[in-house]
Design a protein around this nucleic acid. Structure first.
Lengths: 206, 206
DNA sequence: TTGCGTTCGTTAGAAGTTATAACTCAACAC
DNA sequence: GTGTTGAGTTATAACTTCTAACGAACGCAA
C-alpha cells in the first residue's frame, strides 16, 4: 500500500520512513491539533533521536505543507469518487461525502478550511487541487436545473453554508444548544438555491 | 479609558501594565495570529525582561483566555449596540455589524470562531457571553415574521451561513475565484429562511 | 572479497520558547 | 526609621526547531 515499485532498497526504506513520519504526524494532529505537532516527539516515537528526521523532511513547515497537500488530495479524491459512483449527479451525495470526510477527522478538515496562518502561503499545486475539488460540485450545479449564472451561485452557497455548519459543529459551538447538527445539515441542504421545492433531491438511500 | 477608579497607586500601575500587555498581545495576534503570540516578545517590547510578565499574568494560556474573553465581550457589545440603536429589530443590521466586526480584525474573529485547540476548554463565563451574543439575534428572529419554531431555524441559519461566508472570505479562500464577498454576503442575507421575498429587509442606509 | 562512496543516525550546540526560583531593590505603611 | 510588600532582575530547567560534525553501516562495484 505504501512502497510502490521504487527501485533501490534505500529508496524503498526511505519511502517507508517518510510514510511513517506522515502517519505519526497525522496521529499527533488528530489528537492535539496541527499547532502541537512536534518533530522531536515523532522522532522519539519512532525510536530515533531528534535531528535524524531532517534526513527525511526539510522541517516542520515542510511536513505540515505535505499534510495539507495530502488533506486536499484526500478531499478531492472523495469528491470525485462520489461524483463518479452512485446515481450520477447528486448534490446531496456530495454534501454527505463532505460531512463524512469532515467528521472522519476534524483536524484534517481544519487543516484545509481552518484558521489560516498569516505568514503561510499554500504551494502552487494546492490551488490546482482546490479546482479539482470544485469541479464535481460545479458540474452537478450546472447539470441539474437550468444552467446559467445560477450554477455558480448554487455551488458557492453549497460550499459556504455547509462549511459554516460543519466548522461550527466540529468546533463544538453547538454543544449545549439543543440542536442536532445532522438535522440542521439536512435542512440546509434542502434549502439550497434555487428553491425548487417541487423538485426535491431524491431521498438518500443512505 | 483604561484605569478606572482603582484605589492605590500600585493597583493603578498594575492595571495599566496589564492593559498594555493585552494591547501588545492584540497587536501580535493581529499581525501573526494567536499561535505566534510570545510572552518574551511582549516583555522585550515593553522594555522589561522575560519573567517580569509573570507578575501580571499566570502564563501564555491565561493571557490567551483573557483575549478570547475580550473578543467575545466585544462581539456581544457590538451586537447589543446594533440591536439597541437603529430602527429596532433589523436582521440586516446585525449581519452588517457582524461582518464589520470580522473584517475589522480577522484574527480576533478567528480567536472566537476559528480552529479550536483540542485540549482547550473555554472558561465558564464565556458561555454566558455566547448567550449574550445570541439573544439579540433570537429577539430579531422571533419578532419579525410569525414567531415559532421558525425563529430558531432562522437564527441558526443566520449564524451558520454568515459564518461560513465570513470564515472562507477571511481565510482567503475566495481569492482568484472572481467572486465578490460583499455581494455574496448580501445575496445570502437576502435568502435567509423563511423566504418572504415580498418583505425584503429595508435597504441599508450605510 | 575487498574496498569505496553514499547515506543514515548519532551527539553537540545555537537560538528560540515557557516557566520557576532566588535575589535585589524600591516603594509604601506604620 | 523600620518592616513588609511587590516589582524586576538574573540563573536555570525543560522544552522546541534546526545546523554541524562525526562515526558507522550499508550498497555497489571491481
Amino acid at each position: 500500500m505504501v512502497d510502490t515499485g521504487t527501485r533501490t532498497p534505500r529508496e524503498r526504506y526511505r519511502a517507508h520512513v517518510r510514510a511513517e513520519i506522515r502517519e505519526r504526524a497525522w496521529e499527533q494532529i488528530a489528537t492535539a491539533g496541527a499547532s502541537a505537532l512536534s518533530l522531536n516527539a515523532i522522532a522519539k516515537q519512532m525510536g530515533m533521536s531528534g535531528p535524524a528526521l531532517y534526513r527525511y523532511c526539510a522541517g516542520r513547515d515542510e511536513l505540515i505543507t505535505e499534510l495539507v497537500r495530502e488533506a486536499y488530495r484526500s478531499l478531492a479524491d472523495t469528491f470525485r469518487a462520489t461524483a463518479a459512483s452512485g446515481s450520477g449527479a447528486d448534490l446531496a451525495a456530495l454534501a454527505h461525502a463532505l460531512r463524512g470526510w469532515a467528521l472522519d477527522d476534524p483536524q484534517r478538515y481544519f487543516l484545509v478550511y481552518g484558521t489560516p496562518v498569516p505568514g503561510y502561503h499554500a504551494p502552487d499545486d494546492v490551488t490546482g487541487i482546490t479546482s479539482e475539488i470544485m469541479t464535481p460540485l460545479l458540474d452537478v450545479c450546472a447539470a441539474s436545473p437550468p444552467d446559467g449564472p445560477e450554477a455558480l451561485r448554487r455551488a458557492l452557497s453549497f460550499w459556504t453554508r455547509l462549511h459554516g455548519l460543519l466548522s461550527l459543529e466540529l468546533a463544538g459551538h453547538f454543544t449545549g444548544m439543543d440542536v442536532d447538527p445532522a438535522l440542521m445539515f439536512a435542512a440546509e441542504l434542502d434549502d439550497l438555491p434555487p428553491h425548487r421545492r417541487d423538485r426535491r433531491p431524491a431521498p438518500r438511500a443512505q
